[in-house]
């Protein structure tokens, strides 16, 4: 599967009930009814790239064109035809081979059930953890940074 560039008609994909900035943004069960859904902005400027797959988006942000790295976040609708594994794999392929980046990284929140095997299979490794990094369900929870490097 290949990602394609974002178009205005894809805007509905940019809002959903996943954690903000999450590397693998899957709909979170038990989202409080009063909480605002998460939204990512449409791309702006050279530090941002936004792509879509069926029912999901991949955002490359804080792109460091000198250091050849970007933070990746994704969001996937509950009924998206793209499985999480395929989404991550396409995100890595696009980042490395189309954007010509050498490093991709993103936030992973252990408090939210995330299939870490999908991350590992896509080439990501857990690199660091930051306590109290995200406000979730009335308390500050730990977040991890996972990164993948291009080897060639």
């Amino acid at each position: 599967m290949r990602l394609r560039g974002y178009r205005d008609g894809d805007r509905a994909l940019l809002t959903g009930r996943w954690l903000p900035g999450e590397l693998l943004g899957l709909p979170l069960p038990g989202w409080p009814p009063l909480a605002e859904p998460t939204t990512v902005p449409p791309p702006s400027g050279p530090g941002d790239e936004l792509c879509v797959a069926p029912g999901a988006f991949v955002r490359y942000t804080d792109i460091d064109w000198v250091g050849r790295g970007a933070r990746v976040e994704t969001g996937r609708a509950p009924d998206a035809p793209t499985p999480p594994e395929a989404l991550l794999e396409a995100a890595v392929a696009h980042g490395f081979h189309r954007l010509n980046l050498r490093r991709l990284y993103g936030w992973v929140t252990p408090a939210a059930p995330a299939p870490t095997t999908a991350l590992t299979e896509a080439g990501f490794t857990r690199e660091a953890s930051v306590p109290e990094h995200l406000w979730l369900g009335g308390r500050a929870v730990e977040r991890e940074i996972w990164g993948a490097l291009r080897h060639d």
């Binding site: 790295g69 490093r103 690199e127 953890s129």
Partner: peptide, 24 residues
């Protein structure tokens, strides 16, 4: 220290790691 971001920056021709530090 809470971990290292591998090859996170480019400095003077080479990639360098960035260390994550946390304080309470």
């Amino acid at each position: 220290e809470r971990g290292a971001l591998r090859d996170h920056r480019h400095r003077s021709g080479a990639p360098v790691d960035v260390l994550v530090w946390f304080g309470k």
